[in-house]
Nucleic acid binder design. Structure first.
Length: 208
DNA sequence: TTCAATGATTCATG
DNA sequence: CATGAATCATTGAA
Protein backbone atom coordinates (compact mmCIF):
# COMPACT_ATOMS: atom_id res chain seq x y z
CA UNK A 1 0.00 0.00 0.00
CA UNK A 2 1.31 3.41 -0.88
CA UNK A 3 0.09 5.05 2.27
CA UNK A 4 1.98 2.65 4.45
CA UNK A 5 5.16 3.14 2.51
CA UNK A 6 4.79 6.87 2.79
CA UNK A 7 4.28 6.80 6.53
CA UNK A 8 7.05 4.32 7.07
CA UNK A 9 9.41 6.38 4.96
CA UNK A 10 8.71 9.36 7.21
CA UNK A 11 9.21 7.25 10.27
CA UNK A 12 5.63 7.79 11.38
CA UNK A 13 4.39 4.24 11.18
CA UNK A 14 6.41 1.25 12.16
CA UNK A 15 6.42 -2.01 10.20
CA UNK A 16 3.05 -3.74 10.08
CA UNK A 17 2.78 -6.33 12.76
CA UNK A 18 2.59 -9.78 11.35
CA UNK A 19 5.53 -9.11 9.12
CA UNK A 20 4.13 -7.45 6.06
CA UNK A 21 6.08 -7.73 2.85
CA UNK A 22 8.35 -4.75 2.76
CA UNK A 23 8.06 -2.87 -0.46
CA UNK A 24 11.01 -0.88 -1.71
CA UNK A 25 10.72 2.70 -0.70
CA UNK A 26 11.22 4.84 -3.75
CA UNK A 27 13.17 7.86 -2.75
CA UNK A 28 11.25 10.83 -4.02
CA UNK A 29 13.92 13.15 -2.78
CA UNK A 30 13.87 15.48 -5.72
CA UNK A 31 16.91 17.57 -5.06
CA UNK A 32 15.76 21.06 -5.82
CA UNK A 33 18.93 21.62 -7.78
CA UNK A 34 19.09 25.20 -6.63
CA UNK A 35 20.53 26.42 -3.36
CA UNK A 36 18.68 23.76 -1.43
CA UNK A 37 21.60 23.06 0.82
CA UNK A 38 21.11 20.73 3.78
CA UNK A 39 21.83 23.56 6.13
CA UNK A 40 19.82 22.04 8.92
CA UNK A 41 20.81 20.99 12.42
CA UNK A 42 18.42 23.37 14.12
CA UNK A 43 15.75 23.39 11.44
CA UNK A 44 15.98 19.66 11.11
CA UNK A 45 15.57 18.90 14.78
CA UNK A 46 12.54 21.12 14.83
CA UNK A 47 11.17 19.21 11.89
CA UNK A 48 11.77 15.91 13.57
CA UNK A 49 10.13 17.11 16.77
CA UNK A 50 6.96 17.91 14.90
CA UNK A 51 7.17 14.65 13.05
CA UNK A 52 7.42 12.82 16.36
CA UNK A 53 4.36 14.63 17.56
CA UNK A 54 2.42 13.45 14.54
CA UNK A 55 3.69 9.95 15.08
CA UNK A 56 2.58 9.96 18.69
CA UNK A 57 -0.93 11.08 17.81
CA UNK A 58 -1.05 8.51 15.05
CA UNK A 59 -0.16 5.62 17.31
CA UNK A 60 -2.42 6.91 20.02
CA UNK A 61 -5.37 6.90 17.66
CA UNK A 62 -4.40 3.58 16.22
CA UNK A 63 -4.35 1.99 19.65
CA UNK A 64 -7.66 3.56 20.47
CA UNK A 65 -9.26 2.08 17.39
CA UNK A 66 -7.73 -1.29 18.00
CA UNK A 67 -9.01 -1.36 21.53
CA UNK A 68 -12.46 -0.25 20.45
CA UNK A 69 -12.45 -2.93 17.79
CA UNK A 70 -11.59 -5.64 20.32
CA UNK A 71 -14.17 -4.44 22.77
CA UNK A 72 -16.82 -4.36 20.14
CA UNK A 73 -15.90 -7.80 18.92
CA UNK A 74 -16.16 -9.39 22.33
CA UNK A 75 -19.42 -7.60 22.86
CA UNK A 76 -20.85 -9.03 19.68
CA UNK A 77 -19.51 -12.45 20.59
CA UNK A 78 -21.33 -12.31 23.87
CA UNK A 79 -24.54 -11.40 22.12
CA UNK A 80 -24.14 -14.30 19.75
CA UNK A 81 -23.48 -16.64 22.63
CA UNK A 82 -26.70 -15.58 24.24
CA UNK A 83 -28.60 -16.08 21.03
CA UNK A 84 -27.11 -19.51 20.58
CA UNK A 85 -29.39 -20.65 23.38
CA UNK A 86 -32.47 -19.85 21.36
CA UNK A 87 -31.26 -20.67 17.88
CA UNK A 88 -28.38 -22.57 16.36
CA UNK A 89 -25.42 -20.45 15.38
CA UNK A 90 -22.70 -21.91 13.23
CA UNK A 91 -19.01 -21.07 13.66
CA UNK A 92 -19.08 -19.87 10.09
CA UNK A 93 -21.59 -17.25 11.04
CA UNK A 94 -19.48 -16.04 13.93
CA UNK A 95 -16.43 -15.83 11.79
CA UNK A 96 -18.31 -13.80 9.21
CA UNK A 97 -19.50 -11.41 11.86
CA UNK A 98 -15.98 -10.86 13.14
CA UNK A 99 -14.71 -10.25 9.65
CA UNK A 100 -17.35 -7.63 9.02
CA UNK A 101 -16.39 -5.82 12.19
CA UNK A 102 -12.71 -5.90 11.35
CA UNK A 103 -13.31 -4.61 7.88
CA UNK A 104 -15.26 -1.69 9.26
CA UNK A 105 -12.55 -0.75 11.71
CA UNK A 106 -9.93 -1.26 9.09
CA UNK A 107 -11.51 1.34 6.85
CA UNK A 108 -11.44 3.76 9.74
CA UNK A 109 -7.74 3.11 10.18
CA UNK A 110 -7.16 3.74 6.51
CA UNK A 111 -8.74 7.12 6.97
CA UNK A 112 -6.47 7.78 9.90
CA UNK A 113 -3.46 6.88 7.78
CA UNK A 114 -4.66 9.16 5.06
CA UNK A 115 -5.05 12.16 7.30
CA UNK A 116 -1.71 11.47 8.96
CA UNK A 117 -0.11 11.23 5.55
CA UNK A 118 -1.61 14.56 4.64
CA UNK A 119 -0.28 16.17 7.81
CA UNK A 120 3.20 14.87 7.06
CA UNK A 121 3.06 16.21 3.52
CA UNK A 122 2.07 19.65 4.73
CA UNK A 123 4.81 19.63 7.32
CA UNK A 124 7.33 18.58 4.71
CA UNK A 125 6.36 21.22 2.21
CA UNK A 126 6.53 23.89 4.86
CA UNK A 127 10.05 22.95 5.83
CA UNK A 128 11.14 22.47 2.27
CA UNK A 129 10.07 25.96 1.28
CA UNK A 130 13.21 28.08 1.49
CA UNK A 131 11.15 31.24 1.57
CA UNK A 132 10.45 30.44 5.19
CA UNK A 133 14.13 30.49 6.07
CA UNK A 134 14.89 33.78 4.41
CA UNK A 135 17.65 35.89 5.91
CA UNK A 136 18.71 39.25 4.65
CA UNK A 137 22.16 39.55 3.18
CA UNK A 138 24.85 41.34 5.09
CA UNK A 139 25.25 45.06 4.68
CA UNK A 140 28.51 44.67 2.80
CA UNK A 141 27.03 42.06 0.50
CA UNK A 142 24.23 44.36 -0.64
CA UNK A 143 26.82 47.08 -0.90
CA UNK A 144 28.88 45.05 -3.33
CA UNK A 145 25.85 43.99 -5.35
CA UNK A 146 24.47 47.51 -5.55
CA UNK A 147 27.86 48.83 -6.55
CA UNK A 148 27.97 46.43 -9.46
CA UNK A 149 24.36 47.05 -10.42
CA UNK A 150 24.61 50.82 -10.57
CA UNK A 151 27.96 50.86 -12.28
CA UNK A 152 26.53 48.60 -14.97
CA UNK A 153 23.14 50.25 -15.12
CA UNK A 154 23.09 50.27 -18.90
CA UNK A 155 23.48 46.51 -18.95
CA UNK A 156 22.88 45.05 -15.50
CA UNK A 157 23.32 41.47 -16.61
CA UNK A 158 26.46 40.02 -15.02
CA UNK A 159 28.08 37.15 -16.88
CA UNK A 160 28.46 33.79 -15.28
CA UNK A 161 32.00 34.66 -14.25
CA UNK A 162 30.94 38.00 -12.85
CA UNK A 163 28.22 36.26 -10.89
CA UNK A 164 30.73 33.83 -9.48
CA UNK A 165 33.01 36.65 -8.51
CA UNK A 166 30.18 38.54 -6.85
CA UNK A 167 29.02 35.40 -5.10
CA UNK A 168 32.48 34.82 -3.72
CA UNK A 169 32.89 38.37 -2.51
CA UNK A 170 29.43 38.41 -0.91
CA UNK A 171 29.65 34.95 0.61
CA UNK A 172 26.46 33.88 -1.11
CA UNK A 173 25.70 31.44 -3.90
CA UNK A 174 25.55 32.17 -7.61
CA UNK A 175 21.83 31.42 -7.54
CA UNK A 176 21.39 34.05 -4.89
CA UNK A 177 23.28 36.53 -7.03
CA UNK A 178 20.97 35.71 -9.94
CA UNK A 179 17.94 36.11 -7.70
CA UNK A 180 19.22 39.39 -6.44
CA UNK A 181 19.79 40.80 -9.90
CA UNK A 182 16.45 39.49 -11.10
CA UNK A 183 14.69 41.20 -8.25
CA UNK A 184 16.80 44.30 -8.54
CA UNK A 185 16.20 44.83 -12.22
CA UNK A 186 12.46 44.54 -12.02
CA UNK A 187 12.19 46.56 -8.86
CA UNK A 188 14.45 49.25 -10.18
CA UNK A 189 12.36 49.53 -13.28
CA UNK A 190 9.20 49.60 -11.21
CA UNK A 191 9.93 52.95 -9.70
CA UNK A 192 12.89 54.62 -11.22
CA UNK A 193 12.24 57.75 -9.21
CA UNK A 194 13.13 56.33 -5.87
CA UNK A 195 15.84 54.11 -7.22
CA UNK A 196 17.39 57.12 -8.87
CA UNK A 197 18.46 58.41 -5.48
CA UNK A 198 20.20 55.15 -4.87
CA UNK A 199 21.78 55.36 -8.28
CA UNK A 200 23.14 58.80 -7.51
CA UNK A 201 24.35 57.59 -4.19
CA UNK A 202 26.40 54.83 -5.72
CA UNK A 203 27.58 57.04 -8.56
CA UNK A 204 28.89 59.51 -6.02
CA UNK A 205 30.46 56.75 -4.02
CA UNK A 206 32.28 55.53 -7.07
CA UNK A 207 33.51 58.98 -7.92
CA UNK A 208 34.65 59.63 -4.39
C1' DT B 1 1.03 45.28 15.20
C1' DT B 2 1.36 47.25 10.69
C1' DC B 3 3.85 47.68 6.51
C1' DA B 4 7.54 48.42 3.19
C1' DA B 5 11.74 45.99 1.93
C1' DT B 6 13.62 41.82 0.54
C1' DG B 7 15.06 37.06 -0.70
C1' DA B 8 13.03 33.02 -2.90
C1' DT B 9 9.74 30.49 -5.75
C1' DT B 10 6.51 29.77 -9.58
C1' DC B 11 5.07 30.38 -14.17
C1' DA B 12 5.22 32.09 -18.84
C1' DT B 13 8.31 33.40 -22.80
C1' DG B 14 11.57 33.12 -26.20
C1' DC C 1 18.31 27.64 -19.62
C1' DA C 2 18.03 32.83 -18.54
C1' DT C 3 14.77 36.42 -17.79
C1' DG C 4 10.50 39.08 -16.46
C1' DA C 5 6.50 39.20 -13.82
C1' DA C 6 3.67 37.99 -10.11
C1' DT C 7 3.48 36.22 -5.72
C1' DC C 8 4.87 34.20 -1.30
C1' DA C 9 6.88 34.43 3.37
C1' DT C 10 9.98 36.68 6.46
C1' DT C 11 12.48 40.62 8.25
C1' DG C 12 13.09 44.99 10.38
C1' DA C 13 11.67 49.53 11.27
C1' DA C 14 7.95 52.81 12.42
Amino acid sequence: MRLDNMLIAEGVAGPEKGGGAGAAANASAAASGGPGQPENTIEHSDYRAKLAQIRQIYHQELDKYEQACNEFTTHVMNLLREQSRTRPITPKEIERMVQIIHRKFNSIQVQLKQSTCEAVMILRSRFLDARRKRRNFSKQATEILNEYFYSHLSNPYPSEEAKEDLARRCSITVSQVSNWFGNKRIRYKKNINKAQEEANLYAAKKAG
